[in-house]
């Protein structure tokens, strides 16, 4: 559908393009340049030397390596589980069951609840001595787990918490998508007596595929950028003995803590390249599987 008035498209995207260029792309390019500043005087904004030192520093820094490893594991678990679970929940909530408006409202609440409150509650739920989870485990004779205290479990705790935290957004997206599906499809399936599982795989999934693709891409990007969850769960620290440090935590710490703009920017550029790589793969996959 090549339109002969091809310039017309620019008219529609121009406002967004201007705003994004000024407030996102321009500072982004500056951050990119900054990653090559090896001697930089911040107050007068003068660069005394350029080079690749920041990159070598980052790659050699074992805190960065730990952050990279943690973040990769985090993404590996959070993205599929979160998207899968919210898809199931959204479909159930959208089915003709009782209390569905109650469920829809309740599952939306975490999205508006204060992150401080959420952090406090979950650090209580995970508390080794007084927490809910260890209490339930003790009923089955399982000894107390040091969810937040041990470097071995801190990342797992963060993953569980983050899956919970991300559900609300994905469910909202899926519900919007499900509302968009013409019920005639389902009516037809009911008349034919198609089993529920087949309805799900043959009607719901394909028709929801643009939203599933969207949720995957967004969850991937957001998971690579995980930061607030770490902050809320461990009271501002990156877990016991740095065990739950993530890439963005590392970046912000370098940027606003050590004021090491060059190193922070270099780490951000590396993160950018990683996310870009996986996003491109994902977009390729969705191009093949998304039905518009």
């Amino acid at each position: 559908m090549i339109n002969k008035n091809s310039w017309k498209g620019y008219f529609y995207i121009l406002p967004a393009l201007i705003v994004v260029s000024v407030f996102t792309i321009y500072p982004l390019l500056r951050a990119f340049l900054m990653s090559f500043y090896t001697k930089y005087h911040f107050a007068s904004d003068t660069v005394l030397a350029y080079g690749l030192d920041n990159y070598t520093y980052v790659f050699r820094d074992d805190v960065f390596q730990k952050a990279l490893r943690n973040t990769s594991l985090f993404v590996l678990f959070v993205v599929p589980i979160s998207v899968g679970l919210s898809l199931i929940l959204a479909v159930l909530m959208n089915s003709k069951i009782r209390f569905r408006s109650f469920y829809q409202t309740v599952y939306f609440l975490p999205y508006v609840t204060s992150i401080v409150a959420v952090g406090i509650v979950w650090s209580w739920i995970f508390h080794s001595r007084y927490g809910l989870i260890n209490y339930v485990l003790s009923l089955f004779g399982i000894p107390a787990v040091q969810w937040l205290n041990s470097p071995k479990t801190a990342l797992i705790t963060l993953i569980i918490f983050s899956i919970w935290k991300s559900l609300a957004f994905n469910i909202i997206i899926f519900l919007a998508g499900l509302q968009n599906i013409n019920p005639q499809y389902y009516d037809a399936a009911r008349v034919d007596g198609t089993p529920k599982w087949r309805v799900f795989t043959r009607i719901t999934i394909p028709l929801l595929s643009p939203m599933i693709a969207y949720a995957f891409v967004m969850e991937l990007i957001n998971s690579f950028k995980v930061y607030t969850e770490v902050f809320a769960l461990f009271g501002g620290k990156p877990g016991p003995a740095n065990s739950a440090i993530t890439l963005v935590y590392y970046i912000y710490n370098k940027f606003y803590g050590s004021w090491n703009f060059g190193v922070a920017s270099a780490a951000a550029v590396i993160l950018f390249v990683i996310i870009l790589f996986f996003t491109l793969i994902q977009l390729q996959i969705s191009k093949r599987n998304v039905h518009f």
């Binding site: 559908m1 090549i2 339109n3 091809s6 310039w7 017309k8 498209g9 620019y10 008219f11 529609y12 995207i13 967004a16 393009l17 994004v20 407030f23 996102t24 792309i25 500072p27 982004l28 951050a31 891409v217 990007i221 690579f224 950028k225 930061y227 963005v248 970046i251 912000y252 940027f255 606003y256 922070a264 920017s265 951000a268 993160l271 950018f272 996310i275 870009l276 996003t279």
Partner: peptide, 30 residues
């Protein structure tokens, strides 16, 4: 969204990819 879904213009997909890429940098840096 309309521009990027229903209209055709040169560089459309490239521009859209650039926009998507802007999401990949942590916001507080900006």
């Amino acid at each position: 969204a309309f521009g990027f879904s229903r209209l055709r213009f040169p560089g459309r997909d490239v521009i859209f990819s650039i926009l998507l890429a802007t999401l990949m940098i942590p916001g507080e840096m900006l």
